[in-house]
Every structure is written in structure tokens, then in C-alpha cells.
Design a protein around this nucleic acid. Sequence first.
DNA 1: ACTTACATTATAATGATTCTAAAGTAGTGT
DNA 2: ACACTACTTTAGAATCATTATAATGTAAGT
Lengths: 136, 136
Amino acid sequence: MENKETFVKKLRSSGLRPTKQRLEICKVLYERDKTFHFTIEELSKILKKKSKKSISLATIYNTVHAFKNKNYLKEISINSNKSYFDTNVSNHHHFFNESTHELIDLKDTDVGVIKIKKKIPGKKIKSVEVLVKISS
Amino acid sequence: MENKETFVKKLRSSGLRPTKQRLEICKVLYERDKTFHFTIEELSKILKKKSKKSISLATIYNTVHAFKNKNYLKEISINSNKSYFDTNVSNHHHFFNESTHELIDLKDTDVGVIKIKKKIPGKKIKSVEVLVKISS
DNA sequence: ACTTACATTATAATGATTCTAAAGTAGTGT
DNA sequence: ACACTACTTTAGAATCATTATAATGTAAGT
Ligand SMILES: [Mn+2]
Ligand SMILES: [Mn+2]
Ligand SMILES: [Zn+2]
Ligand SMILES: [Zn+2]
């Protein structure tokens, strides 16, 4: 999808130094065709396999949070002891497979328009997201 | 709303002994007009104020989980380090106030029908819930 | 009253996440 | 190339919500 130079530019343009750890993580996160949903633990396992020199867990946490703050990642609301992250940072809906704990993106057209008729005085709507729980 | 005898019957009928701790917790949870959304920490604080003899934190956790298993409470998907619980156990939608971390129920009529057009082969839809994040 | 399965409790353990502070590195300027 | 400095990585400790342990207490049937 994207090459190393693109990652380097994006990182620099957001004030993040393109370190080799961050670039490794970018490759895992963004060199794919589809949206990637993951927990820190899963990301950590993937990085262990891919890289010769391991990246410390603290750095994985730091990087994921830095990317989240720069809006390159999004945190997803799932009841779990672990946080889920998503490379699709747009407002969008999900299937959540309760058997496998896997998240799957829904397109807006898969759900249709959602009209929130109730208003809370003085409050603005920041996002409207649907979570569809599924299981076998 | 409900009196002590009702709680006693409900607990007995689900195979839970109506202990004084559980009845205290029932009062806090169910003797109210509106749906109650809470974290364990909040429930614990309320119980500290209300009761003379304090209920141990372990019991509060045990009871909340027992009630959840018996479908007297429901756990809510919010990204947070803490779990949220809800006395409204039906499938329903929420506002989440990002400033105050407060949950507010939406009626089905406040949202309208949500049609999920995508299907996952071999999977059944267990629930469809909308989370509307709001802030000032 | 006796019995026993279920509950409560203090406390320890767990596990995800965050913090600390020391060592390493990227980018800037000379 | 070298020095400087701010940013980054890292191992390990700390934190904090939650769960487990195991001893003590209690509800309810006999
Ligand atoms: Mn978080
Ligand atoms: Mn839970
Ligand atoms: Zn997604
Ligand atoms: Zn609710």
C-alpha cells in the first residue's frame, strides 16, 4: 500500500521522528489491503515474528498512543479487559464476533442512515457508532 | 419501586440467597425511577454512604457479576479502564457524555429502526446497539 | 440444633497499562 | 564530522481494576 518514504514523511509531518521501531510498526499496521483491528498483545506478537530485534512493549504502547493522538489510529469501544485499536480512523460501524473476539468493519451503506431524534441541551454529537454483536 | 419481599423472591427464584448484602445492593440498584448506569467504584461509594456496616469490595464484585449472570444487570461497551453496568438489561442505545463519563439511555423511538444489510455466513446477530458520543 | 452448601471477607494474585529514569538516537547547527 | 539537545527507547517498577484464595460466617433444609 504505502512505502517507507511515505511513512517517513507522514511521521515527520506530525512531529514524530521516523525511528526504526515506528517504521516497523507502520509496516505492520498500514501495509495491508484491509482495515486492521488489533490489541496491543496481538500487535506485539506480530512484531515478534516479523522483526529480528524485538521492540519493547513500552515502545509499542508509546507508539500506539502517539499514533492515536495523531489520528492515525482509533480506539474502539468493546467491553473487554483489553483495548482494541483500528487503522480505520473514520466513524464507522462494526460487527463483533463474540466467539473469536474479531472486529469487522461495516460500510455505511451496510447499515443505512441513523437519525438521532433526541437532543441533549448544550451537547454536540461527536460520533454515532453501531456495534453489532454476532456469534455462531 | 420494589419492596424488600420482591427482592427476596427474585433472588430465591434465581437460586441466589437473599443475604443482607445482596438486599442492600438491590435497594441501591433497583429502588429508583430511572435506569441506573454505574461503575463498581461508584456503586461502592453509594453503598458506603447508605449502609452502616460496609460491604466488602469483593462482595460488590461478586454480586454484580452474579446479577449480570442472572440477567438482572448488563455490562455496557465503553472504552474505559473500568466496566460500566446498567440496570436496563434490554437491548438499547446510549448517549455517552465524554465530559462527565455519564451514560444516558435512548429509547428505540429516539433512534429509529436500524437495518443491518450485511450478513456473515453462519453467524447470527445477537444485538445491535448504538453509542452516541456527546460533549459540550 | 445439626448439617452443609452457599456467601462474605480480608488479603493476595493477576494482568493490562502507565510511569520512571537511564541509555540511545535523530535532527540541527557548527 | 562533531557536538548539542530534544525526543525516543527500554527494562523494570508502579498502578489500578479485577479476580482468586481460603478462612470464617450464614441461610435454609432436616
Ligand atoms: Mn486507553
Ligand atoms: Mn468484565
Ligand atoms: Zn473498524
Ligand atoms: Zn442503559
